[in-house]
Design a protein around this nucleic acid. Structure first.
Lengths: 213, 213, 213, 213
DNA sequence: TATGAATGAGCATTCATTCAT
DNA sequence: AATGAATGAATGCTCATTCAT
């Protein structure tokens, strides 16, 4: 009946990840609802009580999920910036592709100040934010190195602004719902934004403007 | 014990508004949680059952709340655009001030595709979107009239993009929480965006760019 | 499926009482465990949610149960004291019989400062205590009237002490358990106290002493 | 990571005591709630599983705690009775001081027939009771020896009654809670009993009466 | 139209206990 | 002897919604 036990640190991290993955999978199926602990545990093939060995609260799991996605994003950005032929447009492309629609950063990010924060140890939230700042500054430095004339701090802030833009556009994106077939009609074109077009355009504009000033 | 009955249409609309106001008031006090029907009704001085005479679901109320706030916003914009000395910057200022932090559009907007949509009659959602399109196009025309060289449709889309930007920046704004005293520290400056500064800057850039192309 | 609705105040009080009775019945069956809300509601033939229409918390029900039993006790005492031939011994007998073993006052009284208090609105606890004081003083006056030379306040305090004695003896009484058949053996005679014998003897002594000083 | 192993009987008894002490410490901090095994083990610096090497159930620990406190009490009483100038009042004083408010006998005693008994091997409960009887009779003999005219068995029973009185008064003592500041008001004086005053007075009366009959 | 009692599914979290290592 | 992951039953409480009056 009992699953094999996670003994060393690595196995335990794997269990955490199993739960995180299960949480995210159901979140997507659920159409954007935080799944219940029961659902998550079941999907992970674990008992409900086991969940609480690895996370103090349900929300903690999702904070960690966002943190992981964030790290991945910066990894991609930095990796791209390490290439000798990196361009600004390429960078934006990487960014937009990385945080596309079905990304935890986009979907759960808005909850970070709100639902998630409300039931997560402050220390964990602070830790997350600190990690974000570090990532941001580090990436800002990489940008400054690659694009002379760009200040690292300004780059960091512009990154943050870019994130806000993606976030905003994503909010408006239609969800996967009944209504959406109707909203595809031409009549609704004016309110149909897309990441690929609108977010990209605004962000490109933002960086161009930042570089030239 | 029974409250005076709402008989004609006007009285009924007033009742609706009482409930909407109550809902919004508690939402703000609740720190961003959708209040329960019990809370809303109690605050409005009505019984729980009465709520369901005026709204089919709780979410419907909040959709209507957003719709009302949206109408108000466009009223302000159009009214400003009617002034002979209206400028683009003034327009942006009106926009940012209107949809500031504590506005239903900003706070509930993100829920529109999600929580609210999920439990509201499709017809009502469609109606809302249609109303938005109409408002958008009408305001776009006003903008085109005021600023020659600006296409009405493009103006409408740029308005929509501006809205996305405000939405995105607002998501990142700190909530009113324990954590926030810590986040005020200098260390976290890179991730602290503000509507007044960042959203305004990005939107200004957006419009400038739109006008010049 | 729905039970008939309690509309006026009287019907509602009846519902409360149904729940209280159910709670007490299961408590006794449970051998001294606070039953779960699910159990109580089921026994009362009501849905779980209905419980919370009548009581804010589970503990509140039991506080009210004790309060009711207390009122009954004082009713009996005062009624006895109203008789022209009331004696002190008779009074003690009434007292001991009233708060016998299976009485909420005895069984739940000890929880009042503790489990019950911990999850009941302070106002309700205070109200209960105030009611107790009033009952106590009133009964003290009746005692003083009946037994000249007895001060009402001293009588009240002696009543309280008598209650403590019954409470203490009752704690030691064997519960209805496996172990008890064994404890019936002669060997354990020294630790077997009884309300009828020990509590009565101590209380009688207490009152005799109080009267003669 | 593993703690040093307890090998001989003495070391093992020490481990038991460590756990018992931890349990009692947390019980007091917890404001009268039986702590969880997790809490106890953590406080004792041991793993949860280790707890079950030393005790079959959580309740068993607390039975043993009470047993230990009981032994201590009788030790004090007998030791006092061994003094050449021992008086009855002195004896009562020793008794009251020994089982004051923060004593396991008082705090957990009421649970012995109830919570604790319910989840402890009958044999252990019986053992405890037998130990109590032995202690009681032995102390009764010491009392009889010291106070001629006092029968050993009667002394034993009177000891038991004294215990009941302390227990009863202690039940009524206010806990350390919100409500208590309010209950300090003069209005509530009639229901405020104390060990030092009320319990002592009743017990003194009891012994005086017992000696003189 | 207004009421508010009744419903019952739903959920987060705790915790004693087991057992493979 | 010691560990601590894993278990899963248990429970208090919330809340949207219904419906008889």
């Amino acid at each position: 009946m009992h699953i094999i036990r996670a003994r060393d640190a690595e196995q335990k991290q794997q269990r955490r990840q199993t739960l995180i993955d299960a949480g995210w999978a159901i979140y997507l199926e659920n159409d954007g609802q935080l799944p219940s602990v029961a659902q998550i545990s079941a999907r992970a093939g674990l008992a409900k009580g086991t969940f609480y060995i690895y996370f103090k609260t349900k929300e903690e799991l999702f904070v960690e999920l966002v943190a992981g996605a964030m790290d991945e994003l910066f990894l991609k950005l930095n990796s791209y910036l390490g290439q000798p032929d990196a361009t600004l447009h390429g960078c934006i492309e990487v960014f937009i592709n990385a945080v596309g629609r079905e990304d935890p950063i986009i979907q759960l990010g808005p909850m970070l100040t709100g639902v998630l924060e409300r039931n997560t140890e402050p220390a964990i939230i602070i830790g997350f934010k600190r990690r974000l700042v570090a990532n941001l500054l580090h990436c800002g430095q990489n940008l400054a190195r690659r694009f002379p004339g760009l200040d690292a701090h300004i780059a960091a802030r512009t990154l943050m602004r870019s994130y806000a833009i993606v976030l905003g556009v994503a909010q408006i994106l239609p969800s996967s719902h009944d209504v959406n077939s109707v909203l595809q009609q031409a009549e609704f074109a004016p309110i149909r934004l897309s990441l690929a077009e609108d977010a990209t355009a605004i962000i490109a504009m933002l960086w161009k403007d930042t570089l030239h000033s």
